[in-house]
């Protein structure tokens, strides 16, 4: 599984951090999302897919 994050689109809602805290965090200065890991284990799959689903800016893509 590969996670792609488009930071230019991110509006800092924090939804991805709530959904998958092992994979996403936020920059201190402006709340923009950051990836903690680009190829998380399959065990995080549901959380990562949920993060992509609820991201309001649709800034997250997941390649299985």
């Amino acid at each position: 599984m590969k996670v792609l994050l488009d930071q230019d689109k991110c509006v800092g809602s924090g939804q991805c951090v709530l959904a998958a805290p092992e994979v996403f965090d936020q920059r201190d200065e402006d709340g923009v999302a950051i990836l903690l890991q680009t190829e998380p284990p399959e065990s995080d799959g549901d959380d990562v897919h949920h993060a992509a689903l609820v991201c309001p800016a649709q800034a997250i893509d997941v390649e299985d």
Partner: peptide, 17 residues
């Protein structure tokens, strides 16, 4: 919109909250 929003987003980040 995004330029202004990002100026006040940090205090609402998950860890800060």
């Amino acid at each position: 919109h995004l330029r202004l929003r990002r100026m006040v987003t940090a205090p609402f980040a998950i860890k800060r909250v």
